[in-house]
């Protein structure tokens, strides 16, 4: 045992790289665990969102009464089983699709016959401008129809908007006519999130 200076003195040089290696490995394992957890959560939310989309898209023509009935009977049940919060909005564009609007709103920013230059409402052309919305119970969505100003009726959604959500957009046929029924093009936004 010549040259030995003691149990601690002999091993001191190796302690630093060993500690560094352990710290590196532990921190990487922790990082990897967080990343996997986050990605699993993302994928689970995606699967739930697409699953809900398939349920909602069972009918390519979304009649108002059908949507309201399915909202309470099917959509909420499905979302509850998948443990996700959701908001489904149907925008009735009917004559021109505008993608610049807020997906949390059902407002159609450009109803026909509304002069954007003057803001003067020049008749609704027989079109519906009010969309549809359906949300999960836990989100406390308070849907109330605001007064129609200048021909634009906006459904206000006054719930707390989620931070981390996923949205899925689909085309859909919707009721457009006010006096007489006719069917035009709209968009269906399905927004899902977890944990408020």
């Amino acid at each position: 045992m010549r040259g030995a200076i003691g149990p601690i003195g002999d091993d001191i040089p190796s302690i630093f790289p060993i500690v560094a290696g352990v710290l590196l490995f532990m921190s990487t394992a922790l990082y990897a665990s967080n990343q996997l957890s986050e990605r699993n959560s993302y994928l689970e939310l995606s699967k739930a969102g697409i699953g809900l989309s398939y349920v909602v898209l069972s009918s390519p023509y979304m009649r108002d009464d059908f949507f309201k009935g399915e909202c309470t009977q099917t959509y909420r049940d499905y979302a509850a089983r998948r443990r996700v919060d959701f908001l489904i909005t149907v925008k009735k564009f009917c004559h021109y699709t505008d993608l610049n609007g807020d997906i949390f709103s059902v407002k159609n920013p450009y109803p026909p016959h509304l002069s954007l230059d003057t803001g003067v409402y020049a008749g609704d052309g027989g079109y519906h401008h009010l969309g549809l919305a359906c949300g999960s119970d836990s989100t406390n969505w308070n849907a109330a129809q605001a007064p129609c100003a200048g021909g634009v009726c906006n459904l206000l959604l006054t719930g707390k908007q989620p931070k981390n959500f996923q949205s899925f957009n689909f085309p859909i046929a919707v009721d457009c006519g006010k006096q007489e029924p006719f069917v035009g093009v709209g968009t269906l936004n399905i927004i899902v999130w977890r944990g408020g």
């Binding site: 023509y61 004559h95 450009y110 509304l114 006719f182 069917v183 035009g184």
Partner: peptide, 20 residues
């Protein structure tokens, strides 16, 4: 599927949305 329901008269403005 939507093309089976959409009435063509609602498409008259899509290429030239007057007033927008």
């Amino acid at each position: 599927k939507v093309i089976f329901f959409t009435q063509v008269k609602t498409l008259k403005d899509v290429a030239n949305p007057v007033g927008l």
